[in-house]
Write a protein that binds this DNA or RNA. Structure first.
Lengths: 193, 193
DNA sequence: TTCATTTATTGAACTTGTTCAATGTTTTTA
DNA sequence: TAAAAACATTGAACAAGTTCAATAAATGAA
């Protein structure tokens, strides 16, 4: 059952007692979401923090010129939220869309705040999880400053082969920060080698 | 006194009782560091988490081609550490260097772990601080994907005028992800307008 | 199955940014 | 205060990446 997946994910980050683990995971509810549908739209207030149990999502923003930029993709065993909007309950500048039929376990804002009070270890859990997310984003930031588009592409398909295979050129290009035409040319160039 | 600065910074993120605040801030020790000296060198294990009370630091990495990339600058009232190396006590891939004569308040790893156990509210404090850092890095990531070098430069001097004024072209260029020659041309172009 | 829509590819012209080298300016240090 | 070192500017040639437009291929809905 997918709650076991969630419990395992939590345990990998921070040991909770069996009782704490049950209590915390009982605060989640499951939701199915069809391909192309939105879990969150830019401008709304993010009501949930989510754990993906099936499918694939893109977390992205649309800038003033109407261009889409993907902050990250999330597949099974990844977490999704607009952390700023969720934590402070202000309007989000991110959208979250399912790229295929998907399932998530969600916890809403008031329940999460309640759990923080009831189970102090959950503070530690999310402190550690947020730190890990920050570290990987710092690495990506530096990579984006130092590598060419070719290198970033090769690094992505090497690190996340199972995600890469689910994406269109357009979606991947807007994560790598290049045009989809240029990504097409990069792919072609690499195949020829 | 600089401990008051630290206490105010903490209070802005999370309310602690006066007793907790005193106990936590007593775990820090102050250190002066001269211009150009290193608080941390790439390859070492990061022994501290630091709060800047005076001066300016750059947190950066050197890539395989020998190029420097700045992750962030830190002035008075900013925190500095290699969060990955400090938390997991593994070798750092970041260096931290003083850009001018500076002062920091430091807490070492064992003391911080002790405080996490003694004062649960400190878990909450760092959960919130890490979230804020993550949110601002997410924003920077998206900006770097969507904006030209001109826009990133203008945005930086607009957001951090007091930091910009302390930096050489080389330092700022390696934060913006461009060559210092190109930054020089951008500056020139903007002045002419 | 077919038609419409979305996605991918390719080329040409263009823009953004890099590299290298030369020169000038500022800062540091003896 | 002079010399050395670090930093900034500029131009020319180049490389990386974009834009636009045309065409082909794949996908999805009726």
């Amino acid at each position: 059952m997918s709650l076991d997946l969630l419990k395992q994910n939590i345990t990998n980050n921070c040991k909770l007692s069996a009782k704490e683990l049950d209590h915390f995971s009982a605060s989640f509810y499951s939701k199915s979401i069809a391909k192309k549908e939105y879990l969150l739209q830019q401008g709304e207030i993010c009501k949930f923090e989510g754990y993906v149990t099936k499918g694939c999502f893109r977390v992205f923003t649309i800038d003033q010129q109407g261009k889409e930029h993907v902050l990250y993709f999330a597949v099974k065993d990844w977490w999704i939220t607009d952390i700023d909007s969720f934590t402070n309950q202000n309007t989000s500048f991110l959208s979250i869309q399912a790229l295929e039929d998907s399932k998530v376990l969600l916890i809403n804002h008031t329940d999460k705040e309640r759990v923080y009070k009831e189970i102090p270890a959950v503070e530690k859990l999310f402190r550690i999880m947020t730190q890990k997310t920050l570290v990987s984003l710092q690495r990506r930031m530096i990579r984006n400053l130092s590598e060419t588009a070719d290198e970033r592409y090769l690094n992505f398909i090497d690190t996340y082969p199972e995600i890469a295979q689910k994406l269109t050129n357009l979606q991947l290009a807007s994560y790598l920060g290049i045009s989809h035409e240029f990504l097409s040319k990069i792919r072609n160039k690499i195949v020829l080698k």
